[in-house]
Amino acid sequence: MLQSPVPLHIPDGFLTPLVSAIGWILALTMIAIALRQTRNQLGERQIPMMGVLAAFIFAAQAINFPIAAGTSGHLLGGALAAIIMGPWAATLIMTAVIAIQSLLFQDGGLLVMGWNILNMGVFTAFTGYVVYRFTKSLLGRNPVALIAGGFVAAWLSVEVGAIATAFELAASGTSPLSLALPAMAGVHALIGLGEGVITSAALSLLQVSRPQALEMGETAPGRRGAIFVVTAMALSIIVALFSPLASAHPDGLEFVAEQQGFLTIAADAPYSILPDYTIPFIGNPAVTTILAVLVGTLVVFGLALLLGRLTTRRQTTGD
């Protein structure tokens, strides 16, 4: 019983220090925004509420149901938290869950924690939230919309987390994208079903027994921000997938680093921080560039998001 419910917790060593650092920068940016947004949302209740609900997600991950001999379905929880509490609150909740799992139980590494927070927290929360609201706006306010929306949102959120993990592994030379992507996406397409059913069942229980509890998510901050973040994620993935067709540069992240000129240290280092890695399956060594651009765009979008937040805050007080 020493397995993570959803095997997305990357241990230390599987990502290069550079990739890990990028993850931390992005994650910290999101956490900083989330702290401010939830402070506006919840006031003095922010800290006890986020803490107790993080404990709830952790505990809810222990509620399982048998699928087949030896395996069981579990919840990851990012989408559920986002649907109920809003995406920024969910970001904080999942950050706490992932931090505790890593610090206390060594489930997920320390150096790579930034990406674990992004994969299982930020990406699942924002995907889940946007997809849920979108399905609800399509289907209207009715129980079917709640169940269908919850299911699709939760399923997709796990899928996005898994795809992101595959990209990070590939960018670190730990696994070729051509393998990691279908493997992660395939396995989690199944795991996501459990996530979907549990999430929609939990939502319909709330709908029946305490409908007010679902109103928090409706009024939570981040409705516009969420669409922005999800668009950024989608664009990053698309750009990353198609860029090497334009530029056939072999060195992936190192190339980008050089272009940015911020890693002269890497150039001076007596060895390379990044493995010189090519992916024979595709026969196109430039695929790593995709990953580099992916990560680069993520960084750029992260910064853009931060700037956007700061400027909108100046114009309108509060969200």
Partner: peptide, 18 residues
């Protein structure tokens, strides 16, 4: 059905936590 039961448990656990 079992997954739905698990989901309801998650829902009521959430209410208690809240």
């Amino acid at each position: 059905w079992q997954a739905r039961v698990a989901g309801s448990m998650v829902g009521s656990l959430f209410l208690r936590a809240l």
